[in-house]
């Protein structure tokens, strides 16, 4: 009873704080200083039609590098906690998946892979980017694992793809340091024609690396989780 009252009081208090947020909230009428700079100059400086991508990959590219490492850390901690053991996997019995799931997997997996690649290759033109595309690719692998539960995603290929794309991301950043204005500067390659697929310098290449890396990491998490040994307790 006391506990419930305390919880109610705490929620009410947070509601009061949030009411203050609501009261003082005003939609802005014009862009703030930083947003104004990006709106004026980002398109001509980076050649990217999608300004969010320009901010994420070029202006705040270092943050994105940290973000990718956080995801890598998550994937490695999860694989460390649930070590894949060969003897458990061979003994494990799976219930076969339903006909509906198997058939729809055969239809949808290639489409999902293509959509994922489209999303991260067009990150500089349309809403989307490496993280979203990588998540779509990983969900294609999840669907495959659901349809054939005994399937093994090759950890060797996953880790190769992941390390190559991670190194590629850093090398692209260093190339900016050597050949252009600074770390992750995208003007190493020509900016191209605005609004075309091959434009915005290094941004599409970096986003392809991010997409492959995120897809490999999430697929790694999914496949680690799906091969958990059965516990008897």
């Amino acid at each position: 009873m006391v506990k419930n009252t305390l919880i109610l009081l705490l929620t009410l208090g947070i509601g009061l704080i949030m009411y203050d947020v609501y009261e003082d909230f005003k939609f802005q009428e014009s862009l703030p200083l930083l947003g104004d700079y990006y709106a004026r100059n980002a398109a001509s400086e980076t050649g990217s039609a999608n300004l969010v991508t320009a901010v994420v990959v070029t202006y705040r590219g270092f943050d994105t590098l940290g973000e990718v490492s956080i995801l890598f850390l998550t994937a490695s901690i999860i694989s460390f906690m649930f070590k894949y053991k060969e003897e458990h996997a061979t003994k494990k019995e799976y219930r076969p998946a339903s006909e509906l799931l198997i058939s729809s997997t055969q239809v949808f997996t290639p489409i999902m892979l293509i959509v994922g690649i489209y999303i991260f290759a067009n990150g500089h033109l349309s809403p989307g980017g490496g993280f979203q595309g990588g998540a779509v690719i990983a969900s294609a692998f999840l669907l495959m694992l659901l349809a054939n539960p005994g399937m093994h995603l090759s950890h060797k290929i996953i880790s190769r793809v992941e390390s190559i794309s991670g190194i590629g991301f850093v090398l692209a950043g260093v190339a900016g340091l050597v050949y252009a204005g600074g770390f992750l500067d995208n003007t190493v390659l020509s900016k191209g024609e605005f609004g075309h697929l091959l434009s915005a310098g290094l941004i599409p290449i970096i986003y392809i690396f991010i997409g492959l890396k995120v897809g490999a990491e999430l697929s790694n998490i999914v496949s680690t989780m799906s091969h958990l040994p059965k516990e008897n307790n």
Partner: peptide, 25 residues
């Protein structure tokens, strides 16, 4: 915040602030 052409000198495109969107990503 997706432009169809590069804004000219002194022209501010009519878009929302891209910074919070990048942060939320």
């Amino acid at each position: 915040p997706i432009l169809s052409q590069i804004p000219g000198q002194g022209e501010i495109p009519n878009i929302v602030d891209p910074v919070p969107q990048a942060l939320v990503l």
